[in-house]
Each structure stands twice: as C-alpha cells, then as structure tokens.
Design a protein around this nucleic acid. Structure first.
Lengths: 208, 208
DNA sequence: AGATTGAACGGTTTGTTGATTATTCAGAAA
DNA sequence: TTTCTGAATAATCAACAAACCGTTCAATCT
C-alpha cells in the first residue's frame, strides 16, 4: 500500500499546519480530518490517536536535528573538546529558541514528553549514542580518558540536565546559560584535580 | 517586645503541627489562630501571611540541615573529595527521604519554592557558601585546582541540579540516583582529560 | 470484500455557582 | 494608647452541569 504513506503524509502535513498555527490542544481531530477531506473516524486507520500524529511530527523534526548533531560530532579538524562543546551548545540553543520563538512546538514537545516518557527517553538515548561515538573516538586519539564510555555519556547527560529543562532556567538569558554550560563543560573535561593542562593541547596537536 | 517572640513561636508551633498533620493547603488560618487561642486577624500582627508562617518553619528546619552540611564540609581527617562526596549525597538523601517519608513537608517545600523563588535561591546560595569554603580549603591543600571558587561552586551546583529536583528523577530509585551522583562527581573531580590520578592520593596523604 | 462515514459513547474540559478561606479594618477591650 | 477582635471583603476552591472532543463501530458506499 504505497498510497497509505501518502495519506499519512497528508494527515501529518495538515496536522503540522494546525498544530503550529493554533497549538496542539486547540486543534481537533475533526479539523485535521476535514483538512484532509475525510471523516474523523478515518484518521484512525492511519494513526492510533491524536498524540501519535504529534509524535510523528516530532520524530520527523527531531531526526533532522539528530543528523545535525551527528555531523557536529564527527566534524574533522576539530578536537573532541570543541566538538563536545558545539554539540551541547547546539542542544541548548535549539531548546532555547524553540521556547522563545516557537511556543507551539514547545507545547507539543511538553505534551509528548509528559504523556509518552518513552519518547523523551528515546531522544536522550539517541543523543547518547552520538556522545558515545564522540567519546570513543576521543579516547582513541588520546584526548579523553575514561573507563565505561556508555556510563560516561550518561553522566555527561546527567551533569548537563539543567540545560535541557527550561523549567529549571528561571528567567536566565541565553548568554547566561551559555556561560554556565561553558563552565560545567570545563569542569567535566578538566576536573577539579590539579593536572597538566598541556596534555590537552598535545592531544589536539596529534589530532590535527 | 520579648513577648512577641514567644507568640510568634507559639504560632509557628501550632502551624507546624497542623501542617505536618493535615498538610499546608488543608489547614486554615482560623484553625491555627484557634489553636493559639486568638482570632484569625491577630495572626497578621505577627506574620504578613500564611505563606510566611510556612517559610518560618522551613527556615528553621533548613537551618539545622545547613549546620549539618557545614559540619560535613569541615570534617577533619577526610580529604576534599570525600567531604564533597558526603555533602552532595547528604543533600540527595534528604530530598529523597522528604519526598518518600514526609510528603507533607515536601508539599510545603514545593509551595514555598513555587510562590517564593527568592527562598529557593537563598537556599542554593547558602549551600554554595559552604561549597566555596570547601573548595577554598581544598585548593589551599592542593587537592583541587580552580580559578574562581565562587564560579566553580555555581558550576558544581549546575552539574548536580538533577539530584535536587524529584521531577527529573522519573521513578529512579535512591541506589540508582546515588550511582549517578557518584559518576557525575567523579567526572567533576577527575575530568575527562587524561592526567595523573596519583596526584589525588598525594593530596590526601598531605591532608591526613 | 474493503474502505469510509458519521452518529454515538465516554472521558475531559469549560463555565458557573456557591462555599470556603485568606486578609483587612473599624471598632471594642485592656 | 496599644492590643486584639470578628464581621466584611475579596480571592480561591469545589462541585456540578453543559459542551466539547477523542475514539469507536454499526451502517453505508464503492
């Protein structure tokens, strides 16, 4: 049924327009159906429910973002620190801008994360995979050093949790948040223990 | 007016009983007043409002906790890593147990933090002061190394933010949370860069 | 048969009304 | 005067009804 995909796409398209214009809560299934010139009941042949349409939209959008992140993570000519830096900053900026410029999209993300914790978890996992790749390569090049890459990636995510949840920002501006992220990153990379800071530069030299 | 303090204490005592027994929302000013054998209106000679009574209770309780933390921070015979470890774990455990065993107290904390963001900020600041002291002493002993102690303390708090907000725990058990906190702490102290791990042990030796 | 409809069902939200309660304040009591 | 009261006020909450909307499915169409 190649047609089915087209219809699904049509539904997703219509819903995308409605959701971004009026918000998730304010658009009804009847409206989406009418935009597709079909009855409300017929939507359920293509999606289990309203939330699943939203999830499809979010997945599509998020996949693009993920690809973007992956590109950053494997950027040649930059050392691991720089790539990790850009990776985390990109996530912060995306969240911040979604919140500021696109409250509708943010509402949708909030609803989905709330009703489908699995989805939020899936996003974290995907980003973690990228992190793991970055960390593995960094260790191969001698830039970073760690025992368990998977666990370390989880810890990096735990330590940067604050920058993923706008509820924790309490009216902080983006520059202030960036300053904080910068500081946390430096701590994560260099640690508190005194040690030769030149090692970093050496590793960077090898990488180039 | 030495009497005023006594009356304030009496009010706080009565409110404490009511709040912990029935919860903040479910106790009325009239009840508290009646427990103190006075009229509701008279309470307002001693407190600006209901929330301020709760704040007084929370402040009293929190001050004890702070003192406890301060003792941990200056514990002799332990190196900075160990004291920082205990400090952060103590906070995690306190939050966790309040949530589990004393939902009333947790409700109150939630309401206060919500309505009085200043108060939540004040708590963070106080804990940060302790952190700064710990960091300063650790640097003096050569255990840690950093530029700006104040800023570093803020970053340590930012990186451990996840462990302060039960909303972010998503049904994680205490052992799992402790494992994560352990991991984040190791990252913060040792960093990702490869460096001589023995330096830590050396510093510990000097401290003993 | 398979695809589609749209009325019907049940859960949720919304709007309204009537308490309940925090807070105030004019005056009583000390 | 200073301290306190308790009725008055205004804001919030609870309960109930009506409307709405996501979802289902028996009936209709192709």
């Amino acid at each position: 049924m190649a047609e089915k995909d087209t219809v699904k796409d049509q539904i997703v398209d219509a819903a995308k327009k409605r959701f971004s214009h009026f918000g998730y809560a304010k658009t009804t299934m009847a409206e989406v159906a009418s935009d597709c010139a079909m009855s409300p009941g017929n939507l359920y042949r293509f999606f289990p429910g309203k939330l699943d349409i939203a999830e499809a939209i979010a997945t599509e959008d998020y996949s693009k973002h993920l690809e973007h992140l992956r590109k950053i993570a494997v950027q040649p000519g930059k050392d691991a620190r720089e790539r990790l830096h850009q990776l985390l900053f990109e996530e912060l900026r995306r969240t911040y801008h979604k919140l500021e410029k696109d409250p509708r999209a943010y509402e949708m993300a909030r609803v989905i994360s709330q009703e489908r914790p699995k989805f939020a978890n899936w996003m974290l996992e995907n980003e973690r995979k990228i992190l793991v790749e970055l960390l593995e390569e960094a260790e191969r090049r001698g830039e970073f050093k760690m025992d368990d890459k998977q666990f370390t990636a989880e810890m990096v995510q735990a330590a940067t949790m604050k920058f993923r949840y706008p509820q924790l920002w309490s009216k902080l501006t983006l520059p202030k948040l960036e300053l904080e992220l910068e500081g946390v990153m430096n701590l994560l990379i260099n640690g508190l223990c005194p040690h030769a800071a030149e090692q970093r530069r050496t590793a960077q030299g090898e990488a180039a």
